[in-house]
Design a protein around this nucleic acid. Structure first.
Length: 328
DNA sequence: CGGCTTTGACCTGCGC
DNA sequence: GCGCAGGTCAAAGCCG
């Protein structure tokens, strides 16, 4: 078996809450916070953020999407260069308060417009170039195939030179209870691929932001442990405003992210895992199909913990949300 | 007709 | 080196 990191991370433990597995296979600390989504917890992780001038508790889904989240700050905050394995998970001790409007975290349109989209693409800007290069190399391969003949044979023309290894974009994963796979988040996406996921009956879909020069990608897959849960993983940061900014409903996600860094080695999976315990009113067209997470489900998500399997080298604590203004 | 989805093939990285 | 799985490409088809 090849790389199980992501799969296990997503499919086995997060959704399942396999605490035994977590504790049994990892020797890293699992920090938890008791963070209602409308309140900032005062537990240890935030201390570290603030020591580094970063306050993840004030980051929002929208902030991330709009690029106001500073990965450089994140890395500094979490000292991601270290090799110790630490997992921070978020456990909302306040349970049911996240159901219903109280979850609070509605990011209004006003917030969105207030965000500076390009404020912190620092860490991804260089990677963006790298990505383009990588894409080019692939194109070159295929164009070559076309050059040789009129027939569109998909011949393999491997470039002799290996393109420089580029670090992956930071990733953020959102868990959303929804019946629809592709959640409306205010941006326009074009699907460019779909793959079956090992150990899961549900395929994973790949989307790219349709905006020109925006290299943000996202993957959407459904948890096979809990089919009602959709995992949306964003990679990169938008360099433009959300086209749906004015609609205001595109960014009302409440998230409890966990973050890792892109600066780790290639084997390291950078994932920001976020919980979206409540998504009612979040989606525009599809809102009717979104289920409000019942308390028991919420609990399941709240018990989210990340196993290491000796693979995760760093994790970042959960961020909580803010921005509760936005009135319907 | 343009934009998007589908889908099979291909590439790459990683573990063995 | 091989095989597997994830990720990407791009032609073909669909839809408004």
């Amino acid at each position: 078996m090849a790389d199980h990191r992501t799969r296990d991370l997503y499919n086995l433990n997060i959704y399942q809450g396999d605490h035994a597995g977590i504790n049994g296979t990892s020797n890293f600390p699992i920090l938890t916070t008791t963070s209602p989504f409308n309140q900032i917890p005062s537990t240890e992780p935030s201390v570290e953020y603030q020591q580094h001038g970063f306050d993840p508790m004030n980051m929002s889904f929208t902030d991330y999407l709009q690029g106001s989240m500073d990965y450089g700050a994140l890395e500094r905050a979490f000292d991601l260069s270290r090799s110790s394995s630490e997992v921070f998970s978020s456990i909302d001790g306040s349970g049911g308060q996240n159901t219903g409007g109280g979850v609070g975290e509605t990011v209004g349109s006003g917030d969105i417009s207030a965000v500076t989209p390009n404020s912190s693409i620092s860490s991804s800007s260089t990677e963006a170039a790298g990505e383009e290069d990588s894409g080019k190399s692939k194109k070159n391969r295929q164009e070559k195939g076309c050059e040789d003949g009129s027939e569109m044979s998909k011949k393999v023309n491997k470039p002799k030179k290996k393109p420089e290894k580029r670090p992956r974009e930071p990733r953020v994963a959102f868990m959303t209870e929804s019946e629809v796979d592709h959640l409306e988040d205010g941006y326009r996406w074009r699907k460019y691929g779909q793959k079956a996921v090992k150990n899961s009956p549900y395929p994973r879909s790949y989307y790219r932001c349709t905006s020109q020069k925006c290299i943000v990608k996202k993957r959407v897959e459904r948890s096979f442990q809990n089919p009602s849960i959709v995992i949306t993983t964003y990679e990169g940061q938008h360099n433009h405003h959300s086209p749906a900014t004015l609609r205001g409903n595109a960014s009302r996600m409440l998230v409890t992210p966990m973050l890792t860094s892109p600066t780790m080695g290639p084997s390291f999976h950078q994932e920001l895992l976020m919980q979206v315990p409540h998504t009612s009113n979040l989606l525009s067209d599809t809102s009717s199909t979104i289920t409000t997470m019942p308390p028991h489900n919420l609990t399941t998500l709240q018990q989210l913990q990340i196993p290491d399997y000796g693979l995760l080298q760093d994790m970042v604590p959960p961020f909580m949300h803010r921005q509760q203004q936005q009135q319907q």
